[in-house]
């Protein structure tokens, strides 16, 4: 049996009396693109927060390459190679585009306050080496003209790309994308969709995608997991999912499924 890259077993999460997630099982394999879909409030973002260590699950286990990381904090998970973007952009307004992406290199850099303040020597060498990687990412995302702009002056679609770049700069093994095309027009959506495929094919990074845009999900995903009221109601290829009665029921109502 091949070792699962990321495996969730029996994940439950309660907020007071509200059951956000219930017995969720999920696994992600190397290089795979798995989409999580479901109606609003189905628990998709909660699931992301559990995987990236923002929430601790009430029960169940998260493992990464066979290793239990349920109790590991976000920083530890980032060091293991888990990267994520946020549904509501979380760019750092004090930093420009290049600097935001360089924050993604944080775990690969070593210089501290003293070396940084002195600049010459260790910090400078490091900045030069990692700047090279960041420039590759900027080129890949085609955001060269915005390189040294303040992030709050950028159009929404570009900001989303910068956040994607910041996650890519971590050289992650798993990339969690929380609604990467939300609020975008067709052209922007197509650009991001192409980038997501390139990330899979060129970099071989496994991706977990939460998205409402069905066109994007059906076109890109290798497999789809459907959540409804905090439970997994179906998992399968896009083709299987589009014909699944339970899924159609969840989206269109029970009557829709019966017709």
């Amino acid at each position: 049996m091949t070792e699962k890259l990321l495996e969730l077993a029996g994940i439950g999460l309660s907020f007071g009396g509200i059951r956000a997630l219930d017995a969720v099982d999920l696994n992600l394999e190397e290089g795979e693109l798995l989409a999580i879909i479901g109606p609003n409030g189905a628990g998709k973002t909660s699931l992301f927060n559990i995987i990236s260590g923002v929430y601790a699950p009430s029960e169940g286990q998260v493992s990464f390459r066979g290793r239990d990381i349920t109790r590991a904090d976000s920083r530890r998970r980032a060091e293991l190679g888990l990267a994520r973007t946020f549904q509501n952009l979380e760019l750092f307004p004090l930093l420009n585009v290049v600097e935001n992406i360089l924050v993604g290199r944080h775990r690969h850099l070593r210089s501290g306050v003293l070396a940084g303040g002195v600049w010459f020597g260790k910090a400078r060498g490091e900045e030069i080496r990692h700047r090279a990687r960041v420039e590759e990412i900027i080129e890949f995302l085609e955001i060269e003209p915005y390189r040294s702009d303040a992030v709050d002056t950028l159009p929404y679609g570009i900001r989303k790309r910068v956040e994607l770049g910041r996650a890519l700069a971590m050289d992650p093994t798993v990339l969690l994308l929380d609604e990467p095309v939300a609020g975008m027009n067709n052209e922007e959506t197509e650009d991001i969709a192409r980038l997501i495929l390139d990330i899979k094919e060129e970099f071989g990074i496994a991706q977990l995608l939460v998205e409402h845009d069905m066109g994007v999900v059906m076109d890109l995903a290798d497999r789809i997991t459907v959540l409804d009221y905090g439970r997994v109601i179906a998992t399968g290829t896009p083709d299987e999912i589009s014909h699944d009665q339970a899924v159609i029921g969840a989206y269109l109502g029970r009557e829709g499924a019966e017709k």
Binding site: D73, S74, A78, R84, E90, P93, E99, V103, R166, M170
Partner: peptide, 17 residues
């Protein structure tokens, strides 16, 4: 850069390692 990241939010910063 890490300081500026922490300045705008603990969660986004820690998710970046």
């Amino acid at each position: 850069r890490a300081m500026a990241a922490v300045g705008s939010g603990d969660i986004a910063a820690s998710v970046l390692g």
